[in-house]
Design a protein around this nucleic acid. Structure first.
Lengths: 221, 221
DNA sequence: TAGATTGTTAATCGATTAACAATC
DNA sequence: TAGATTGTTAATCGATTAACAATC
């Protein structure tokens, strides 16, 4: 089943579909048309049908889509039924927040171990995960490939840690450091850049406040 | 100075430019051409010139761009020299991580106060920010408009809290709840969806592993 | 069967890239 | 001045939307 290269835009919409379908399932809806789904998500029905058609034929003419079945297809496309191994590097506030609150398993990921440099943390247990000294990192790779490294170290250490992980053979990095990592093209990097997001918000806020001020000025004239 | 509607893609690239220019400045570079900047960022020089031209003329023919000046222009476009007021709702791990480690001031944002429901937190101080009971939230709006609410409450409370904030007149929400908020179109919502990001990573990982497996299979044949 | 809705092909729209005159 | 590089216009490419035959 050869599949043409799927655009990034489509891939980024898949998690939203998954979320929406979960919501519909919870609400007891078991069937939905592309039209109704589009209305609820602010997309056109065309776009939704185009998106799904990248991966197969999940609907039925005259009926629409079965919510549960469609949910399963998308979950499977996203790899949630696989088992990805992960290590977490940097057990600061963010690292701890992820270990304690984020449901990795739900998405097919399993945190094997966590690493930090601070002596007071080594050997302790957070959310059932053992914290090791960073020097132990190579041992995580002895048992087999590591699919993801969750990187939540301070900015200053970001690229050094990333390079070490890449040298050890990590397949991908989920990057929380707010730093642009420069690693070889073979490693997948997925960024969560808080600062980029807040800066974008700053732009939208400025824009909206300027627009309002301009409207005020016009009215007063 | 009327400015045509700037596309989202452009806006999302601005923080990356800012980051890169800071890096160049630190490295002592004080002048750069669109060609060199493109090489370093993986963009075409055309795109870079097109992006900047949405906002004005920041370069000089035959010379390129002055790093410091350009950095200043972009920072100003993003509103970092403004003063946005913010409240933080939900002082869990993520909320605390943001208060303690994230440099809001650097981006023009100032956290005024934080709110939670847990009695043991009320009245305490985290990173210089006082934690109030959530019932005190309306008082934050008495002193003047609140530009941003950082929303980091548990999923189950997300929409209720969002609606209250909107009713109180908040201008925007920086949403960390992993929930799609349904608020009126008048409020700006900027999402940090960890789960969407990890699911996308799962897709890319699956894709790359399938590709490798397929290559193996071809070789073995 | 008639109505609804899919999957897909064609048309449109927008974003990226290329080209080049202007000019530092 | 000559070389370099901008800002902008035109060309290309890709993504979204519209249309419609197929069919449940």
């Amino acid at each position: 089943m050869k599949q043409a290269k799927v655009s990034n835009n489509v891939i980024r919409r898949l998690p939203r579909y998954l979320r929406k379908l979960d919501e519909l399932k919870t609400a007891g809806v078991d069937r939905i048309s592309s039209g109704e789904l589009g209305r609820q998500m602010g997309l056109t029905s065309s776009q939704i049908r185009q998106d799904f058609s990248c991966f197969g034929e999940f609907g039925q003419q005259g009926y629409g889509y079965n919510v549960t079945a469609l949910r399963g297809e998308i979950a499977s496309i996203l790899g949630t039924n696989r088992h990805f191994s992960a290590v977490l590097v940097g057990v600061g506030n963010i690292g701890r927040a992820l270990i304690e609150n984020f449901c990795f398993e739900q998405y097919g990921f399993h945190i094997v171990s966590a690493y930090d440099v601070r002596p007071e943390l080594i050997g302790t247990d957070i959310g059932g995960i053992n914290i090791h000294d960073i020097s132990e990192l190579p041992r995580a790779f002895e048992r087999g490939p590591v699919d993801v490294a969750v990187l939540s170290v301070p900015k200053i250490m970001a690229n050094r840690a990333a390079r070490e992980l890449v040298d050890l053979g990590v397949r991908s990095i989920w990057n929380f450091t707010n730093v642009e990592l420069d690693v070889g093209g073979d490693v997948i990097v997925e960024n969560i850049h808080f600062s980029d997001s807040l800066l974008a918000l700053g732009y939208y806020l400025s824009e909206s406040m300027d627009a309002k001020a301009a409207a005020e000025a016009r009215k007063d004239k």
